[in-house]
Structure formats: C-alpha cells, structure tokens
C-alpha cells in the first residue's frame, strides 16, 4: 500500500475508521479521521487525499466512502483486530484492559492467512469479547444491532450486546462494574447519578457516561436457565445454593475448567471455608472441594438458599 510501515498503519486505521462510520451510519470526513487517529487536520487531509488518489476512499455528497478495494482491506484489518482480541481473551489470561491495545498493533502485522489459521484454532468465533461481530473470511458482517442502554425502556429485560472499548478509561470502568456482553439486565429507574440497574443477581447504579457506551438488545428467546438471584461470592459458610450459570465474562479454558469441576446449572454448592487472607474460598460442589478467588466467585450465578442438602466430599 505505502512504503513505510508507519504510513501503512495510519492508512489502515483511517480505512477502519471510515468502515466503522459506515457501519454505524455516521458520516466520515477528514476531520473525523483526524479525531479518530489523533492527527492534525492537515495531516489527516493529506492522508485522506492520498487514500482517495490511491483508490481506497472516495468522496460522495461531502462524506467519505470506502471503495470496493478499501472496504475489502478495512474488513481484513477489522477481522484481524477482533480475532486477535478473541484470542487474547480466550487463551492468554491477559486482562481485558490489554486486549484492545495489543490488537491495535497486531492487526497491522498479521497476514489474512494467519488470521484465518488463528480463527480456525479458536473454533471460528462469531463475536469478539466486546460483543462485536467478527467479519467472516469472505468479509461478511451482520448489520449493527442493539441500542444504547441510556435509551432503553425501564422494566424491559435486555441482553448486553456490545461494550465500546474506547475510550479505555470508560471501558475499564464498565469492566469494573462487571458488565460483559451476553449478560441480562433490567433498568429499574433513573437517579441523579445514573441508571438503577439489576444485572444477574446484582443491583447497582450505573453512571450515565458508562451507560452511554453499553448497547443492549431485546432477548430473542426465553432464557435457557432460570434467572439467578445472587452470586457465589454472596454465599455464607455452610449455606447451600444451586448454581444457575456462569457469567459470559468467564471464557475459554477457564470456563471449561469450571464446568469440568462441576459448576453447572443445577449443581448444589456450599461454601466450605475461606483462606486466612480472605480469598480464595473453598466450595463443596459435586463431591469435591474447589478453591475459587473472590473475583471468580463473583462470576458464578446462583439461586436462593437450598435446605436439607448435605454435600459430601469424595473419599
């Protein structure tokens, strides 16, 4: 595309930006490119001019559009980005704050063939960890779905479909609040500080700035598991409750491991004891004693207290 690597990265980022604008039905311009890529107006204009001359972008009605060539390339970069993010989330154990940044670098380095190989190894994932659809190898992408949580009607159950990963600070705060694509939630009302939200056994107030970066959609089907009322971390010593499911925040190997250990819907689970340093805690489930950190126990959804169940340990 261009000679120097730095220029290529800028050009690809610009194509990606225009693609995202088209996808979200927004208008792309030299100024929006400048904003997205943190360039000066002049530098952005030069970049856009070069891409127009090169046949990647075109002007139409005062807005920037992708040419067929440009769209093809933008989708490749986007696919690389989202596949890498999925890989980082599923297989590396890196924290969620690092996925985006690393993928921003790798998306410019990976060839389409390597991206395909990586995707295949991950079982051709459909969505990245932020809830964004991953374009298929042939470049197909479903239309954008969901609406901003701020506009969602009160009392209607919704599913989080997307969490915006930029700006990083807002994303980190959303992650801190424990909201992950795939979770179900209900808005109970609004207060001065934000939205009163109930989400998988937790009730809290979500600041408006965060709610503006979360997209939700209607539940397509009746949920497969009964709604949870609490999290495993709420369990008191000696109390028994039934597992309702695992949070979508638990992914990949960690998810399989917890399922293997018996944290499956319907399993009774009991808090055995807690480490001297307050975390992890040991839980009795399906005949064994499993230690989970508080952060993990926070991601296991459970129901109400169950009486008269004695959980024996294996012998």
């Amino acid at each position: 595309m261009t000679s120097s690597r730095h220029e290529r990265v800028l050009a690809e980022d610009a194509l990606k930006h225009v693609f995202q604008c088209e996808y979200d039905r927004l208008t792309a311009s030299a100024d929006s490119v400048a904003g997205a890529l943190r360039l000066s107006r002049d530098a952005a204009r030069l970049l856009v001019d070069r891409l127009v001359t090169g046949g990647w972008l075109a002007w139409g009605g005062g807005a920037l559009y992708l040419t067929v060539l440009g769209r093809e390339h933008a989708v490749q970069v986007l696919r690389a980005h989202r596949v890498v993010e999925t890989y980082l989330a599923l297989e590396t154990g890196l924290g969620s704050s690092e996925w985006h940044q690393r993928a921003e670098v790798d998306e410019h380095n990976l060839t389409p063939a390597r991206v395909d190989a990586l995707a295949q190894r991950l079982g051709d994932p459909r969505y990245d960890p932020h809830g964004d659809p991953i374009p298929t190898a042939s470049g197909e992408l479903p239309p954008a779905q969901g609406s901003v949580l701020l506009d969602w009607p009160e009392g209607v159950e919704a599913r989080i479909v997307h969490v915006e990963d930029e700006p990083a600070l807002v994303y980190a705060a959303i992650a801190q609040a424990g909201l992950v694509p795939g979770m179900r939630l209900v808005v109970d009302g609004t207060v001065v500080e934000g939205l009163k939200v109930r989400c998988e056994g937790r009730a809290f107030v979500l600041p408006r700035t965060l709610a503006g970066n979360v997209s939700v959609a209607r539940l397509e089907q009746a949920p497969m598991a009964e709604a949870p009322t609490r999290r495993l971390a709420d369990l008191k010593p000696g109390e028994v409750a039934e597992v309702r499911g695992l949070s979508p925040a638990i992914r990949g190997r960690e998810r399989n491991r917890l399922l293997d250990l018996g944290f499956v819907p319907g399993s009774p689970v009991e808090l055995g004891f807690t480490s001297p340093l307050a975390s992890p805690s040991a839980y009795r489930v399906r005949g064994s004693l499993i230690a989970l950190r508080t952060e993990q126990a926070e991601q296991v959804f459970i129901g109400q207290r169950v009486e008269g169940v004695d959980l024996k340990e294996g012998t």
Binding site: R126, Y127, P142, R159, V264, G266
Partner: peptide
C-alpha cells in the same frame, strides 16, 4: 448471525448440566 451470541456457551452448559 441469527443464533444468539451466547448460544454456544449455553449449549455446553446444558450438556454439562444434563450429564450431571
């Protein structure tokens, strides 16, 4: 793209639940 995103996870969870 029509099947809900968490479909795979839920399916696996159900299989584990059923075997349990």
């Amino acid at each position: 793209w029509r099947v809900p995103p968490e479909f795979h996870d839920r399916c696996v969870e159900e299989i584990y639940g059923e075997s349990a």
